[in-house]
């Protein structure tokens, strides 16, 4: 009798785990936007880790990989159209892209938004966005531990995260981190780029 009860509990647990796993796997698109086997990171411990690579579509429908920007400093900014603090920092990002773009900065905005491509496009146009906007997927936000918005990751030219910020921070803090990401591993990235050019 006691053995039967234990068997029923075990069976119930197995069924529960299977249902749970099924629900998880049925969420979102089947093809993961993540590239490689990078471990998911949490926002708090992102510093010093290699930025997980991903492939997402931009607003023109082109596939863009984070690794396409290797050799440049990347400010990776997770945002959404419903996010008030994100709206505040967007004009700063526009100015900073203008200012630091010629030095090798690439700002990449990943829209974690269910509102659709047209809404994102309209919003970005109204805000005068001059940097790359990608149509985000939850898997990318999860891989970076972006639990809130905006979530910003500063990636140096070698693809390493040098700092991150969850929530709105001051313009000067963003600018300081941009300067750091532009200067860190500059020579290493230039050497790697030179080698790549020589071999091609």
């Amino acid at each position: 009798m006691k053995r039967n009860a234990v068997a029923i509990v075990v069976l119930a647990l197995v069924v529960a785990v299977m249902i749970f796993a099924g629900v998880r796997s049925s969420r979102g698109p089947k093809v993961s936007p993540m590239i490689g086997n990078a471990e998911p990171i949490s926002s708090a411990e992102a510093k010093g880790k290699q930025a997980p690579d991903f492939a997402l579509q931009d607003l023109q429908g082109r596939q863009v990989k984070l690794s396409d920007f290797r050799g440049k400093a990347v400010l990776l900014n997770f945002w959404a159209t419903f996010c008030g603090p994100c709206k505040v920092e967007m004009p700063w990002l526009v100015e900073l892209q203008k200012q630091y773009g010629p030095q090798g900065l690439e700002i990449v905005g990943v829209a974690l938004d269910d509102s659709g491509k047209e809404t994102i496009e309209k919003f970005a146009k109204e805000m005068g966005v001059n940097y790359t906007i990608l149509q985000g997927q939850d898997a990318v936000g999860d891989a970076y531990g972006a639990v809130g918005l905006p979530a910003t990751y500063y990636i140096d030219r070698s693809g390493k995260i040098i700092d991150s910020a969850l929530g709105l921070v001051s313009r000067s803090e963003i600018e300081d981190n941009i300067k750091k990401s532009l200067s860190e591993n500059k020579s290493e990235a230039e050497t790697a780029n030179g080698r790549a050019k020589a071999t091609s």
Partner: peptide, 12 residues
């Protein structure tokens, strides 16, 4: 619902 704090917003 969709929540925000004083400096960040969270998914619905």
């Amino acid at each position: 619902y969709q929540a925000c704090s004083d400096n960040a917003c969270y998914p619905p």
